[in-house]
Write a protein that binds this DNA or RNA. Structure first.
Length: 470
RNA sequence: GACCCUAUCGUCCAGUGGCCUAGGACAUCGCCCUUUCACGGCGAGAACACGGGUUCGAAUCCCGUUAGGGUCGCCA
């Protein structure tokens, strides 16, 4: 029944005549709650994408009519989250603009003037000290870019009571200030969560009573937990701050969010944001609520780590190494190590665990690995033989740059042949001797990066330590 | 309760009447590569919620049921 009333979605709004001469102005209007929810972040992202796609403006407006929530820290979480995701705003807090102030708490005079307008039009009445808007009592049709045309019958006062727009203490209610600000800030398109869809007919009444043309609306589906339950603050992946602290690459999270409810229609997934900006079309936004899959986000994150230019990766990994107390001295030192271990990193925060033993000689030996490998008969002898061979290798080619992965491999393999054992009998003891653990990047490359002196010293140290305990 | 939105693999998406014995990705499982862990490659299992229509033909259109979500605040 609903579908019969819907207009085709594709291409409906960009061709509207009024938009041809009008620059797109969209806004993200969060209320400061102390954190930025992924759903909010995606709403901001879609607005930003639309602004960038059309060459319009992306505006940030803080809906802080609730004084109790209006704290600097809560505001900061919004700024930090948006900036981290690379969603720069053209007008709003910190950057200004021609339609400010961009905090509702500072727009009292404007709201008063609109109250006067409504009062003059006979649209208001008082009820227990509060101000109520007298509904127009007719059908309001929401023409939504995502959901199509939806008529709402507001004629029944029982089911649709007049909305309150101002409390007895003079503070404002969301519906009213939201509409006033959208008029004042010349907002052309409102892209917001689907939870506002049922509020929209009320907003339309306000626009009508104020004699203003409403913006175009696009209500995007909500984001739920993977199991379909509602996502709340504490849930995994709910807060943008969690990604910042969790070692995610901002571009990866943004890429993931782009794909939650929107699709380029051709199976492309890892996409540079410039391509998304180019191809983004609100008409292609899905109508079904998306369930949040953090594992897929992790995979995308890994893809970004894999594909990022090495220098850039180093830059992003650095703070994590510092935080873990790893003394890498200069960024140049971490580049060769990163080359070896990057395909093992799912998150930036994994870096210290894979890299620490490259930057200290005082690394621990993994007890389990030692018990499993070096305790085996002959293991220490193999290591001893290898140490001797490598020392010889080093001496033979001293200073000639022959301490290479290839040379080390050849040498190790011939030692294994000499001893009449499988290559692994040398490889595993060598890895533990040089790194203290049983897992890691390619052994020969690891040894190459470590360098002759350190490898030989480490073998000696391992031999001394493990022979003693034996 | 009323009104509104939604319904394809466990999850994200593709599919807009015939190209669908339903495609891709994550996850899962198997094999290959390999000194380990990964990366990578190959392969497998896995879905059109249900019931009625319309039509020569329906995942696609219509109706209903069921399920999920949203709104109905002097929250935003």
């Amino acid at each position: 029944m609903r579908r019969a009333h819907r207009l085709p979605r594709a291409g409906t709004f960009p061709t509207l005549p009024r938009l041809m001469s009008e620059q797109v102005r969209v806004r993200f209007a969060p209320s400061p709650t102390g954190y930025l929810h992924v759903g909010g972040a995606r709403t901001a992202l879609f607005n930003w994408l639309y602004a960038r796609h059309t060459g319009g403006k992306f505006i940030l407006r803080i809906e802080d009519t609730d004084a109790a929530r209006n704290t600097e820290a809560a505001m900061q979480a919004i700024y930090d989250g948006l900036r981290w995701l690379g969603l720069d705003w053209d007008e709003g807090p910190l950057v200004g603009g021609d339609f400010g102030p961009y905090f509702q708490s500072q727009r009292n005079a404007i709201y008063e003037s609109y109250i006067a307008k409504l009062r003059a039009g006979g649209h208001l009445y008082e009820d227990g000290g509060a101000l109520r808007f007298r509904s127009l009592r007719k059908v309001q049709t929401v023409d939504d870019m995502v959901c199509g045309k939806i008529p709402f019958d507001l004629s029944n006062a029982e089911t649709h009571p007049d909305m309150t727009i101002r409390r007895p203490d003079g503070s404002w209610i969301f519906h009213f200030v939201n509409v006033v600000d959208d008029i004042e800030m010349k907002i052309t398109h409102v892209i917001r969560g689907e939870d506002h869809l049922s509020n929209t007919p009320k907003h339309l009444e306000l626009f009508e009573a104020l004699g203003a043309t409403p913006p175009r609306y696009a209500h995007i589906p909500l984001i739920m937990n993977k199991d379909g339950t509602k996502m709340s603050k504490r849930d995994q992946g709910a807060a943008v701050g969690g990604y910042i602290e969790g070692g995610y690459v901002p571009e990866a999270v943004r890429n993931f969010l782009c794909l939650l409810g929107w699709s380029p229609k051709d199976d492309r997934e890892i996409m540079p944001i410039s391509e998304v900006v180019e191809r983004f079309d609100p008409a292609n936004i899905n109508r079904k609520a998306a369930h949040f899959d953090l594992e897929k986000c992790d995979w995308i994150n890994q893809q970004y780590i894999l594909q990022m230019p090495l220098e850039k990766l180093a830059e992003q990994v650095e703070p994590w190494l510092t935080k873990a107390g790893i003394n890498f001295d200069t960024r140049a030192n971490i580049l060769p190590v990163l080359t070896l271990v990057r395909e093992r990193l799912k998150k930036l925060s994994d870096a210290p665990a894979w890299m620490d033993y490259f930057f200290t000689e005082d690394f621990p030996f993994d007890a389990e690995a030692v018990a499993k490998v070096l305790a085996k008969p002959g293991a220490l002898d193999h290591l001893r033989a290898l140490a001797a061979a490598y020392a010889g290798l080093a001496a033979a080619y001293a200073g000639l740059g022959k301490w290479t992965a290839a040379a080390l491999e050849t040498s190790l393999k011939s030692q294994a042949t000499l001893a009449g054992v499988k290559v692994g009998e040398f490889v595993h003891p060598a890895r533990i001797g040089a790194t203290g653990r049983s897992v890691g990047a390619s052994l020969y490359h690891t040894l190459e990066v470590l360098g002759r002196e350190r490898v030989l010293a480490r073998f000696d140290r391992a031999l001394a330590k493990l022979s003693a305990t034996k």
